[in-house]
């Protein structure tokens, strides 16, 4: 098997594996009992998205996708920092686990 054929095969397999990882992370986001779990899942989604973009860049050999991956990483980092600040200011919700929409007096 030549190198190019091997690379094409591994690109296809990696896309499949990354899709599986994506689905598993989405299951955690939907199920995740607390807000920080969901934020962690979103962070993981960004990381898997960077992997996707890199695989697509190799598949199409259009390397401008690399800039998209780097800026996606920057946006994901800023989003996680902002969500962490939000968690710190919001405080833990007593109703966590049943429903996030239900507002209960804190403390």
């Amino acid at each position: 098997m030549s190198g190019t054929a091997f690379l094409n095969l591994t690109v296809t397999i990696s896309l499949g594996i990354l899709s599986l990882a994506f689905v598993l992370t989405i299951v955690r986001i939907l199920r995740g009992p607390t807000l920080p779990d969901r934020i962690l899942g979103l962070d993981m989604l960004v990381s898997i998205g960077i992997g996707y973009i890199c695989v697509i860049a190799i598949k199409t050999s259009f390397f401008l996708y690399l800039d998209v991956a780097i800026s996606l990483g920057l946006v994901g980092f800023l989003a996680t920092v902002a969500f962490a600040r939000y968690v710190l200011h919001r405080g833990a919700q007593a109703s966590e686990g049943s429903s996030d929409l239900e507002e209960k007096p804190n403390g």
């Binding site: 690379l7 591994t10 990882a21 598993l24 962690l40 695989v55």
Partner: peptide, 22 residues
Amino acid sequence: AYLAGILLLVGALFSLLAAIGI
């Protein structure tokens, strides 16, 4: 090309491992 293919596979498997861990 061989090296990049192996790196892609290992990276994708690490992502899958992280998702299973989550």
